[in-house]
Design a protein around this nucleic acid. Structure first.
Lengths: 250, 250
DNA sequence: CCGTTACTGCGTACGACGTACGCTTTAATG
DNA sequence: CATTAAAGCGTACGTCGTACGCAGTAACGG
């Protein structure tokens, strides 16, 4: 396990602050943090589509090409934005908190982070997460499974399962509320409209299961979004709990 | 439930072939299907990034702007590509197949579809799926849950949970094998390299859970990818099964 | 103290992209 | 046959990421 001489991707070294700056030339006028913060500011104000190098540079009062002294390419800037937006994971509550509650809180923190920075879901992912904050989130999630008898691989799979679900759900709901904002409607109204459109499309075709769903309860759509979230998470955690029990039994 | 006068988005009407063509002007020289097929061909050959309007037009031997007689904008073309790539869902095996096996097969079909058309995962999703094939996939998934006593909303949530997991897992594995292809390595080698890099990054920091994971079994990484897939799916289906039992009990 | 050297910010330039607009040609309709 | 709507497409515009090179600046070696 030679941990010395593995060479990291350039963008990862930058993210972790591992780039030596011997300081030969002029002083830098910016910092990486300021660049990333400016880019996040643009994304927060006008969406990820508005994040262009020239726009970010303009927000900082520098020329476009100056940014490339801090970031190798735009994709790397996007990765840094995501890592910074996640920030520190939520503090653990205590050793007496059960794994299930802790993991549920961690999952929900994922959702609120994405909802607070909706542009995150549009950042194209490149490879597994290696930013400092993302690694801390991973550490935190793995730590919640400490008491359980799960094996290493099982812990990893569980965390990926939960984080994938959280990201997916946050993306769906954010899409919905964004579409609602564009149309000047509430998310519920957009949901209703979708069901109406689906009803129109499946009117004459062989879609018995969908038709049943539509007549069943599309109109009394009183389900809270939180209930939808809890449903999926509970299914997953029930499944994990069954495994935990079978592990601790032997 | 006025299903007559709901107006669909233009792109959806096109996808379902609901656009009347009274045929006043010259004959069209192309069909929508040919345009979509050409775009898919480009994506299959050189990735989604290579799908530009001019490239697709070139593959068809027409001018760039001619495509806009068939498709309102590039995003709509991308949506049509996704729908066509999914195609028809796998045929149901029979009424005696249990919901669990049927849903597992459906989930796996999602994975293979994405693996067969890896560019799918890079298509930005806009709103809920309304293409003809996607609706058929939905119909099929809902139908697998027919025997269970689950409520409509529960069925929908279950399907979204499973499809989200499938898409997520397919995306992760496709990313991995794509990174492997770029680096001239096998996916396993890329995985090992990632663990080495993570070990390097967490060498001096407070990451006990990650360190434990790394020393635990990162080296005997003999887990098949299929095992990883089955782990998550089994957790989910176990959770659903518990709910199904509780529903059929009352 | 003075080159030498490395690094700074940045102006310019290039190629690619999506698509608005308008023109010419075509064919069905009155 | 005149009218009219649609087809194909050439041109043009604005935006984007970034390669390249240049002038100014500060630390280092002599």
């Amino acid at each position: 396990m030679n941990e010395q001489d593995v060479d990291l991707p350039e963008s990862v070294e930058i993210a972790w602050g591992l780039r030596e700056r011997p300081g030969k030339g002029p002083k830098r006028s910016l910092t990486l943090e300021r660049v990333v913060a400016a880019a996040i500011g643009v994304a927060e104000a006008d969406g990820l589509g508005a994040v262009s190098m020239s726009r970010v540079a303009g927000a900082l009062g520098v020329a476009t090409m100056s940014l490339y002294r801090y970031v190798p390419a735009k994709n790397d800037l996007l990765d840094l934005m995501v890592d910074a937006a996640y920030g520190d994971p939520p503090a653990p509550r205590g050793a007496d908190e059960g794994w299930r509650s802790a993991l549920a809180r961690w999952a929900w923190a994922n959702v609120t982070t994405i909802h607070r920075h909706p542009w995150i879901r549009h950042v194209p992912i490149g490879g597994p997460p290696m930013g400092p904050c993302q690694v801390r989130w991973m550490e935190h999630a793995l730590a919640t499974l400490d008491g359980t008898g799960l094996r290493g691989g099982e812990r990893l799979s569980t965390v990926m399962l939960v984080s994938g679900y959280a990201r997916n759900w946050a993306t769906l709901t954010a899409d919905l509320s964004e579409a609602a904002g564009r149309a000047g409607l509430t998310p519920d109204e957009v949901g209703v409209r979708y069901w109406q459109q689906l009803a129109r499309l499946t009117r004459d075709g062989p879609y018995p299961a969908i038709r049943r769903l539509l007549t069943d309860e599309s109109l009394d759509q009183e389900e809270e979004f939180d209930a939808e979230w809890s449903f999926g998470l509970d299914r997953i955690l029930d499944g994990v709990e069954a495994l935990v029990r079978s592990r601790s039994q032997t």
